[in-house]
C-alpha cells in the first residue's frame, strides 16, 4: 500500500529573530525521520540560508512567509512560499555566491526559481542519496 506524504506548515513573520524557529523545526522533523546528526546540521544551514534571504529581501508586500515540510519515507522536502511573488528568484549569482554554493552542496536537490503558485523555492534531502 502506498503511504501518502505528511505535510507540516510553518508561517513565520519576515523577521530575523524567527529564522531560528525554522531551523529548530527542521531539526526536529529531520531527527524524527532518522537523518543522522551531521545531515541534520546541513539541513539546518540550508533552511536558514533561504529564510535569511527572505528576511533580507522582504518587502512591504508581505509580512510573513510560509515554510512547507513534506515528509515521505525516504525524503524531506522543504518548500517556501509568500504572498509577495517578487520574492521568487531571491538569490543572485553575484551577490549570493556563498549561499547558493552552500545550498547546492548540502542538499540533494535544489530548485531556486519555481514558477508555481504553491512554491517559490524547493529543496530536498534523501535519507539515502539517490543512485
Amino acid at each position: 500500500m502506498e503511504t501518502s506524504a505528511d505535510i507540516i506548515e510553518l508561517m513565520l513573520p519576515l523577521k530575523a529573530e524567527y529564522v531560528i524557529i525554522a531551523r529548530l523545526t527542521a531539526s526536529g522533523i529531520a531527527s524524527r525521520m532518522g537523518f543522522d546528526i551531521e545531515v541534520i546540521e546541513d539541513i539546518k544551514v540550508a533552511i536558514s540560508e533561504v529564510c535569511s534571504k527572505y528576511v533580507q529581501k522582504g518587502s512591504s508586500l508581505a509580512e510573513k512567509f510560509k515554510v512547507i515540510f513534506t515528509v515521505t519515507e525516504d525524503c524531506l522536502t522543504i518548500a517556501f512560499n509568500s504572498e509577495d511573488k517578487s520574492l521568487r528568484c531571491i538569490f543572485s549569482k553575484d551577490d549570493d555566491e556563498f549561499a547558493v554554493s552552500i545550498l547546492n552542496a548540502l542538499m540533494d536537490e535544489v530548485q531556486l526559481c519555481i514558477d508555481n503558485e504553491d512554491y517559490l523555492l524547493k529543496m530536498s534531502k534523501f535519507l539515502e542519496r539517490k543512485m
Binding site: 536558514s48 549570493d96 552552500i102
Partner: peptide, 9 residues
Amino acid sequence: KYIDSTGLG
C-alpha cells in the same frame, strides 16, 4: 554551534 553564509561573510 552554528553559522550560515551571513556569518561567513
